[in-house]
Amino acid sequence: MPSYLNLNSYKILNLLLILFFSIIVSSNIKFYYLNLFFYSIFHFCIIYLVFYYYRNVLYLIFFLYGLGLDILLINQIGPHLIVFLSVLLIYNLISKYLYHLNYINIYIILLTTIFAMICLEKIISFMLFGSTINIQYLLEINFLTTLLSFPVFYIFSKIDNIK
């Protein structure tokens, strides 16, 4: 089916990104942890695209997602936009040092980057708009992210095999 639709792994990851973005911003989901789940997976998609499918068009894509998340989630512009673009830029600068790392180190770096992204979004939101930083929320989402990391990366690695 993927070949019939001419879908490669990059396109599939982008489709997943659109789906998770839509679920996050048009949420009618009453379960708090399910919202956290989708928010966390969205960040996994972002970071996976940055690390394994880096290309310049991602700047434009992440700009639009950052802007969309900021407007529809916070009704302000800033946190997601800054964080998404910064992650891309930082990766662009340090990517040559990452090629020599083994898979465990890469896994730890990916996970740490997601933690840093989620925390930074909250901190920037607090600094710019005075949103409260809920420590319990940060602990919950980081715990959930850790739990999800292995199955999500496993599924993503299967998507990678689609040519």
Partner: peptide, 29 residues
């Protein structure tokens, strides 16, 4: 300008994202 961008976000993007995420909403309901 920001208000116009927010208007587009709420009036244009919201219906599209609602449509895309409708299967999840149905399952949730």
């Amino acid at each position: 300008l920001i208000n116009n961008i927010k208007n587009i976000g709420i009036d244009v993007v919201s219906p599209i994202t609602r449509f895309i995420s409708s299967p999840v909403t149905i399952v949730n309901n």
